[in-house]
């Protein structure tokens, strides 16, 4: 009788441990899946396009002079400028994806998403910018 009780207790204990492990795994999977879904949502997908322009094309339009620190603080802009310069095609241009927050910040710092966006100058090269919404 005692031995039967012990067996039952062991079975209940094993079932409880398996239940707890399953519950932990389920919570981990559901939570990570939800977070992965939610973090992917950041408004409409956007692209920043930069195109190298000649100095003669500026026609007294406003230009913002970028420093190394500016590019360090705006990795998206740095990546777009880097890609445009390595583009063998003419005119040199590049499009890089960006989030809504990055678009907002670039608009407030360089006016990229404004009417008559200023040209950007870095290292003697001038760039026209455009924001594409998908």
């Amino acid at each position: 009788m005692e031995s039967g009780n012990n067996k039952r207790m062991i079975a209940v204990g094993v079932a409880a441990v398996i239940g707890v492990v399953l519950l932990v795994v389920t919570v981990v999977l559901v939570y990570t899946a939800l977070v992965a879904l939610i973090t992917g949502i950041d408004g409409l997908p956007q692209e920043l396009t930069v195109e190298v322009v000649g100095e003669e094309d500026l026609q007294n339009a406003p230009a913002i002079h970028l420093t190394d620190r500016d590019l360090k603080q705006h990795p998206v802009l740095a990546s777009a400028i880097r890609e445009a310069n390595s583009n063998p095609n003419m005119p040199k241009y590049a499009s890089v994806p960006m989030t809504g927050v990055e678009c907002l910040v670039l608009t407030e710092s360089c006016g990229v998403y404004t009417k008559g966006a200023p040209y950007l100058e870095y290292d003697g090269v001038y760039y026209a910018t455009r924001v594409l919404l998908h």
Binding site: A16, G19, V20, V21, L23, V24, V25, T26, V27, V28
Partner: peptide, 13 residues
Amino acid sequence: AGIVAVALGFMLA
């Protein structure tokens, strides 16, 4: 045990 498991699951995730 269920409450602890759920809390542990969230922390682990």
